[in-house]
Nucleic acid binder design. Structure first.
Length: 495
RNA sequence: GCCCCUAUCGUCUAGGCGGUUAGGACACCGGCCUUUCAAGCCGGCAACAGGAGUUCGAGUCUCCUUAGGGGCACCA
């Protein structure tokens, strides 16, 4: 429509980023209301992969225009979360960039200038309607069965004002007729009837912009070329296109990502259990595994595998692999993948990432050499880093409780004399190494004429408190003679 | 209520231009291995939402129905 264009910050017109393509600039623009949700992180991952694939830029912008819900911890949680999962941004908070500031609350004057421009050109207007009046209008409309919308009471009143005046908001004028359409990369053409759109607020009475204004102003000023965001934004994209047109700006390309669902197929949220990235970290998920898993929901590469390194993901990333339909978050598959990643690690790496978790139980006091031995045995049995608490506690503490079923099966009066004898023989064993321990067990079984399992199982239960675990002889070597013998003797009291 | 999006195994998905025994992965169920568990290996179960149409031929194209999801704020 408008032939003229408006540049609130003309000096940015010719800025470019050395070494990075200006053609592929994407952003992740969360609002700091708490720890980032895996759905948001998934969007961030896809944007990041896109930027890396095309040697573009991944920009982080904090959308903190809702001062009611704003929390300082929210900002920190976002930065920490992104760093934890390895999504480093090229421009944004902490490191700045040519198009900053990257925090919207620091850009208020820009939004004011933009909003004022729209008012002056007749694209927007001041509105003094009170919340009470809006409420009344809405009620009336509902009663009549018409869609609740602002009745445009102030649209042609010519109310004067300046941005941020208390009790005044600025509303955008939606054309009465016509259609607004855009081409979505994933979904094709989507169009809206203007008659169904609302004269939405662009500047609130507290002087802060709404998402719609701030978002398009910043995307334009930061020279964002592709907007990849969740599909819940599709319905407001019509408004955004209208805004771009009013300013005379070229809209970016849009790709509306499918949403991540819970097992009940509604949008994944807290009520489905863990959903924030912090929680996954605490549950013992590896950032690489979560990254890998999340990148594969709603997107798929050409190759028929599922474990991909970051570099491979970057190489293969392609918009055409984006899936328009939503996917259910399958914690089971994530767990499996996490196990795969654990098994791919070197043992000392595994020990290193486990340290914070060991520390929580003061198990970090054990010598590094010991931990290496423990994890050598446990590595292929762990799906989560925290599984060590359940599956390997006996390397660090004496068993307090014995597996109930195991107790009934293995701690029988018949086994008691054997356990006593085994304890004695172990005590006399010079080389407490798994080969020798195994030989000792086998010799005893042969001698008495029993099956190996007849003594192996009770001893395992006595030493570990469990009926499952790594090879008994290897595990006993790690735990050591004194402790093993002590535990067997203690178990005798249970029989 | 109105608007928008979506639709292949239970779940994540492959299946550009219409012609496949509809492929893979997780989960599940068997088997092998084995002192248990895990890992690994081998095998199995399991899907084109429904209905019209176009066509020699439709998972693939069109329309309708149904179902699910999302959006209708001075929240993002």
């Amino acid at each position: 429509m408008s032939m003229e264009t408006f540049e609130p910050l003309p000096h940015l017109k010719d800025v470019f980023t050395p070494g990075r393509s200006m053609e592929y600039r994407v952003r992740f623009a969360p609002s700091p209301t708490g720890s980032p949700h895996v759905g948001n992180i998934r969007s961030a991952i896809l944007n990041w992969l896109f930027a890396r694939h095309y040697n573009g830029s991944f920009i982080l912008r904090i959308e903190d225009t809702d001062r009611e819900r704003y929390t300082e911890e929210g900002v920190k949680a976002i930065l920490d979360g992104l760093k934890w999962i390895g999504l480093y941004w090229d421009e944004g908070p902490e490191l700045g960039g040519p198009f900053g500031p990257y925090i919207q609350s620091e850009r208020l004057e820009i939004y004011h200038r933009c909003a004022q421009y729209l008012v002056e050109r007749g694209y927007a207007y001041y509105c003094t309607c009170t919340k009470e009046r809006l409420e009344e209008v809405r009620k009336e409309q509902m009663a009549k069965g018409i869609p609740p919308r602002y009745d445009r009471h102030c649209r042609d009143l010519g109310i004067k004002g300046s941005p941020g005046d208390p009790d005044k908001v600025i509303r955008f004028k939606i054309p009465y007729t016509g259609n607004t359409k855009f081409n979505d990369i994933i979904r094709g053409e989507i169009s809206f009837s203007n008659a169904l759109l609302d004269d939405f607020v662009i500047l609130k009475s507290d002087g802060y912009p709404t998402y719609h204004l701030a978002n398009i102003v910043d995307d334009h000023l930061m020279k964002i070329t592709y907007v990849m965001r969740a599909e819940e934004w599709i319905p407001s994209t019509g408004k955004h296109i209208l805004l771009y047109n009013a300013f005379g700006w070229k809209p970016p390309k849009f790709a509306h990502l499918s949403v991540i669902l819970g097992p009940d197929k509604s949008k994944l949220s807290k009520r489905h259990g863990a959903s924030s990235i912090i929680e996954f970290r605490e549950m013992g998920y590896l950032p690489d595994a979560l990254f890998n898993y999340l990148s594969l929901i709603g997107w798929s590469p050409k190759e028929n595998r599922e474990i991909f390194s970051r570099d491979e993901l970057i190489q293969m990333f392609d918009l055409s692999g984006l899936n328009p339909s939503s996917g259910v978050f399958d914690i089971n598959k994530l767990k499996w993948m996490n196990g795969e990643y654990i098994r791919m690690m070197k043992v000392d790496e595994l020990v290193e990432v486990s340290m914070p978790f060991l520390k929580k139980r003061s198990w970090d006091r054990f010598p590094h050499e010991y931990l290496i031995k423990v994890y050598t045995l446990m590595q292929e049995r762990l799906k989560l880093i925290t599984d060590i608490y359940e599956l390997g506690y006996y390397f660090f503490e004496d068993p307090h409780v014995y597996d109930e079923n195991g107790k009934i099966r293995y701690f029988t009066p018949e086994t008691k004399p054997h356990l006593e004898e085994i304890a004695e023989r172990l005590y006399s064993l010079i080389n407490f190494e798994h080969k020798d321990i195994e030989e000792l067990f086998k010799a005893y079984a042969r001698e008495i004429g029993i099956k190996l399992g007849f003594i192996v199982h009770p001893v395992r239960l006595a030493v570990t408190g469990m009926t499952i675990g790594p090879g008994l002889f290897e595990l006993m070597e790690v735990i050591g003679k004194e402790t093993c013998v002590k535990r067997i003797k203690k178990a005798l009291d249970e029989i």
